[in-house]
């Protein structure tokens, strides 16, 4: 049986080196690029004719946009209107990355802690920037909430700092683990199809069911990632916990 973790191995396609730092173009980078191009071209194609009575393509892209807008409205209220494009981009990138990873010979970059972690850390930094921009020095209250006695500072500040640092970590682990587990299951069941000879149809049917389930998980995880990013952004700009 093949190693089910081999599908996650990074392969260098174009080796590049900058001052001793490996910045090679890998299969993961290629899949990210394909995802971005896919989203970009699909939206251009769907919105090539913009009418008051929408075509199927226009209605499809507008419904995704409306979904994200309502999601932001639920979590951030009226303050969230200016972050719609950011969250919309984030959702499409993660969702399409998850779905494209299900295709044969593709690569699921969202199963890699490095790729998702970078995205989450970037989002945490954006949260801090937006928080400081909105609340100024009041953002420091995140680490020491108002109304607490100063004697509690040595206890509360490390706890709040850890709580903040854990946000991108929990986002990353949730997405990467969920995507990896599904792909490992598919690979293991796939290897049984040939090994079981005549009875190979049993794992084949199971594999087909799991692929359908994985499609659902791919969208669900993108939704969870986006919702929690919205919640964290809302906490950063409003100061409410």
């Amino acid at each position: 049986m093949e190693n089910p973790l081999e599908q996650f191995s990074i392969k260098k396609l174009v080796p590049l080196n900058f001052n001793g730092i490996d910045i090679s173009f890998t299969n993961s980078s290629l899949c990210m690029l394909i995802t971005i191009l896919f989203v970009f071209l699909t939206l251009i194609f769907c919105l090539r004719k913009r009418n008051i009575i929408p075509t199927v393509g226009q209605a499809f892209s507008e419904s995704i946009y409306e979904f994200i807008r309502s999601l932001i409205g639920e979590t951030m209220g009226n303050d969230g209107a200016k972050y719609v494009s950011l969250i919309f981009t984030l959702f499409l990138f993660v969702a399409c990355g998850n779905i494209l990873g299900l295709f044969p010979y593709s690569f699921t970059f969202t199963s890699h802690i490095a790729a998702v972690g970078t995205l989450s850390v970037f989002f945490l930094l954006l949260n801090i920037v937006f928080g400081v921009k909105r609340r100024g020095a009041g953002y420091l209250r995140t680490f020491f909430p108002e109304g607490l006695p100063w004697l509690m500072a040595p206890l509360i500040i490390p706890v709040e700092t850890l709580s903040l640092l854990a946000k991108p970590f929990s986002l990353t682990i949730r997405l990467a683990v969920n995507m990896s587990v599904g792909h490992i299951m598919l690979e293991v069941l796939g290897s049984f199809i040939i090994a079981m000879h005549f009875f190979g149809f049993i794992p084949l049917v199971a594999d087909m069911c799991i692929i359908m389930f994985e499609l659902f998980v791919a969208l669900l995880q993108a939704y969870i990632y986006t919702t929690l990013s919205c919640v964290y952004l809302s906490q950063a700009i409003s100061g409410e916990e």
Partner: peptide, 12 residues
């Protein structure tokens, strides 16, 4: 959310 909310600060 709950599944990772407790574990992540501990690991960090």
């Amino acid at each position: 959310r709950m599944a990772t909310e407790f574990v992540s600060p501990v690991i960090i």
